[in-house]
């Protein structure tokens, strides 16, 4: 397959970026999107040009490090699929593909398609945990938790921290990311004791870190590679105002 690419190039956080045209040829349909970019980069390097800088690590959809805006959608055209799990068979031969970074005011661009998502770690540091030190834990089966409760908490806990929700939100809100952690821990009995303080602290941190407010457009839910529901945001808001 052959493709025309329009890729965002930006030397560093301070310079102005722009879309640059590239072409890739003879790409197998089974190639992943990132492997297609790898191939482009090998060609660029051998031509003496600078390769396109982008993030990725596990390439199996779980570490959350990859994340590109492809044809105007976070992680590209497929639902519930991270960029690394997207394959070229999802595109038409000869198609022009726009590739941009996850843009948001809380995610400064580092270079080309790489952004700084440290703000998400800072939200977790502000309270996204159960305060138990090593050695304090009681016997695991002492607290029975129904299978449904655990599964429901798991739906929230499955967040991979990629930031697609933030990048897709017109307000640049991290409400889905923050709510997913709050909801994961709130739904488990061991996380209930701290939930009030946790919710207050995490919401406050989210505001202070430059993320926008949530206006319930639901774009985040549509683009979340893990399919995390905005009902968690409702839970967060309810707990916050309680």
């Amino acid at each position: 397959m052959n493709f025309k690419l329009k890729i965002w190039r930006q030397e560093n956080p301070k310079t102005k970026g722009k879309l640059v045209d590239y072409e890739v040829k003879d790409i197998s349909a089974d190639t992943s999107f990132l492997e297609m970019l790898d191939q482009l980069n090998e060609t660029l390097i051998l031509r003496g040009e600078n390769p396109v800088s982008f993030d990725s690590d596990c390439r199996e959809g779980i570490c959350g490090q990859c994340g590109l805006f492809i044809n105007g959608r976070a992680h590209g055209p497929l639902d519930q699929t991270s960029t690394c799990q997207l394959h070229m068979r999802s595109f038409k031969d000869g198609e022009t593909i726009y590739v941009e970074p996850f843009r948001s005011s809380a995610f400064p661009i580092k270079k080309d398609l790489r952004v700084d998502r440290q703000a998400l770690d800072n939200i977790i540091a502000s309270g996204g945990y159960i305060s138990v030190s090593t050695g304090q834990a009681p016997e695991a089966n002492q607290t029975r938790i129904s299978s449904d409760e655990v599964e429901s908490a798991f739906d929230a806990a499955s967040c991979i921290g990629c930031g697609a929700c933030v990048a897709s939100c017109k307000n640049g809100s991290a409400a889905l990311f923050t709510a997913a952690k709050i909801s994961h821990l709130f739904q488990l009995p061991q996380g209930k004791i701290e939930h009030k303080k946790r919710t207050q602290n995490m919401v406050k941190a989210m505001d202070q870190l430059g993320f926008g407010a949530c206006s319930n457009t639901g774009a985040c839910e549509v683009e979340c590679p893990q399919g995390i529901s905005i009902r968690h945001i409702a839970l967060m808001n309810k707990e916050y105002w309680k």
Partner: peptide
Amino acid sequence: IDQAVAQGVPFAREYSGYL
């Protein structure tokens, strides 16, 4: 296992609520 459960790791459970 005790430690992980206390941290909120959602290990699979039986319908009875046990691990």
